[in-house]
Amino acid sequence: MYFSGGAELLFDKKKKHDVNLPAKETPWTIKDLLPWMKDNMLKERPELFIQGETVRPGILVLINDADWELMGELDYSIQNKDKIVFISTLHGG
């Protein structure tokens, strides 16, 4: 999992995280992943990353270098070795 554009500042200031999700009976989806990230990875200011059940507007999500909108967004079933990237387009001024 990768973070850039400032999103990494919310995740321990690290751009790359190797993540092993716990086993569960149904496949992991992005909808499952986001609250797990909030509880297990997010270090500060969750309101800058999560809004409701999804990412906040201004956060681009790429799955294997493709826009998540093409992949089913929250319903995408995560596969082993997927490259998931979160890029913040929000900048202070």
Rank of each mutant, 00 (worst) to 15 (best):
I63C: 08
T29K: 09
K43Y: 08
F86C: 00
P27S: 08
G58L: 11
W36Y: 10
F86S: 03
E44A: 14
E69Q: 14
G6P: 07
E47D: 14
S4A: 10
P57H: 04
F11A: 00
N20R: 13
V19P: 02
D12Q: 13
I50L: 12
I30K: 02
N64H: 00
D75S: 10
H17A: 12
R45M: 11
D67G: 03
E25R: 05
A66I: 10
L42A: 10
D67K: 03
S4E: 14
L42G: 09
M1V: 08
I87L: 05
W36I: 06
L90Y: 02
E73F: 09
L9R: 13
K15F: 07
W36F: 03
I50S: 06
D18A: 13
G93A: 01
K81Y: 12
K31T: 11
G58S: 08
D75W: 01
H91G: 11
K43Q: 14
L70K: 09
L10S: 00
Y76E: 01
K13S: 03
K38G: 06
M37H: 03
Q79L: 15
L48F: 13
K38T: 07
T26M: 08
H91S: 12
L34S: 04
G93K: 03
I78E: 03
N80Q: 10
K14Y: 01
Y2V: 02
F49G: 00
K38F: 03
G58V: 09
N80G: 09
F3A: 05
I84M: 10
N64I: 08
E53Q: 14
V61A: 11
E44Y: 12
T26L: 08
R56K: 15
K13Q: 13
W36N: 10
P22A: 04
L34E: 05
I87A: 01
L48P: 03
D75M: 06
R56P: 06
I59W: 03
D12P: 02
Y76I: 09
M71T: 10
R45K: 14
E44G: 02
R45Q: 15
P27H: 10
D65S: 13
L10G: 08
L33D: 04
D67T: 01
T26E: 15
D67C: 07
N64Q: 03
E25S: 03
W36R: 08
L48N: 15
M37R: 07
D12H: 11
N20I: 14
Q79I: 09
A23M: 11
S77Y: 01
T29W: 08
D67A: 10
L62T: 05
M41V: 01
A7W: 06
